[in-house]
Design a protein around this nucleic acid. Structure first.
Lengths: 166, 166
DNA sequence: TAAAACTTTCAATAATTACTGAAAGTTTTA
DNA sequence: TAAAACTTTCAGTAATTATTGAAAGTTTTA
């Protein structure tokens, strides 16, 4: 299997997977392309490879920069902007986790907590408060589990480094 | 805050959260409604509360049954079908995890693995194989972390039961 | 300073995804 | 057995979401 072929397949795969998890398909594809490119790419190169418009590249790349998954990078002697992706996958995972935590989990937790102030006189509130509380606990634990995993990976990676240095 | 008000707010919240994570909004809403209802509900009651069509209720309830989150339930003296949700949130989480594992993670892992058969002669393949391999490892570990969490919860729950019995 | 090179924005449009409702199908009743 | 009660299906339509592309904006060059 030729590299370019494999890369395009990976881009498709990552795009589909992303959209199943609520991430814009094109944004995931741009990310996949940059993740698997050794060199920094220009807007025109991204347009060309993915067959999307200039506006589309601009919007999606900028969003990836907001997520802290992609950086701008200048090439000497060229005044275009070039883009590179963070290549360390554990770092990528950490940043995605962090961003979703901030954007989605925290507001969710806040709302759930507020909903527990339901009129206790109503007999239906009993099950309701339990359910909402259980979801709160579940989401909280999933959050901290993924935190733990990220930290664990950090240590494992660090461990690998140390082993290499010895 | 009145119960009904809180329940409707929860339904909205869960619907929005679901759609941010790739789950059909209406399906999440039906789920939220059943989760927070003490009694089993008929198609007409769901239509009424959520303001959606008969076809919509039918499709979404059936999908929830496939996910093993909702059961049919008969009421004596009534020939309509009624629906109840599984109320144990850890069980719910386990079943959603199981289903997404089967539908999304497994195929993803399979494809990623296949992509590692890229022509090694191409110098770009080096980074590519590393990236794909790292993603494989990451996804694998996240999977087993969530497994572990579910099992842990099972034990915690069991522990609570035991404590109560003593 | 103004033209060239490049980036950004966003209204219009396209693509995707979800929902409706009525007809067809099924089960129950009498 | 046929009418009533109920469930399912799915073509058509609506709602949502994503994309284009050209005009406006910005930066650089000479």
């Amino acid at each position: 299997m030729k590299f370019t072929e494999a890369q395009l397949e990976f881009i498709q795969l990552w795009g589909n997977f992303g959209s199943q998890w609520g991430i814009n398909k094109t944004m995931a594809q741009v990310h996949a392309l940059l993740l698997t490119s050794d060199e920094a790419l220009s807007t025109d190169e991204i347009m060309e490879t993915l067959g999307i418009s200039r506006g589309g590249v601009n919007t999606n790349v900028r969003e990836l920069i907001v997520w802290n998954l992609v950086y701008k990078s200048a090439k000497p002697g060229d005044r275009k902007e070039f883009f590179v992706a963070e290549k360390d996958i554990w770092e990528v995972a950490k940043r995605i986790t962090r961003e979703r935590q901030r954007r989605e989990i925290e507001p969710l937790m806040h709302h759930l907590n507020r909903l527990k102030n339901v009129d206790e006189a109503d007999p239906q509130s009993l099950n309701f408060v339990k359910t909402v509380g259980d979801i709160e606990r579940l989401v909280g634990r999933m959050s901290s589990a993924s935190d733990t995993l990220m930290k664990l990976e950090e240590n494992t990676f660090f461990g690998t480094l140390i082993r290499k240095w010895k």
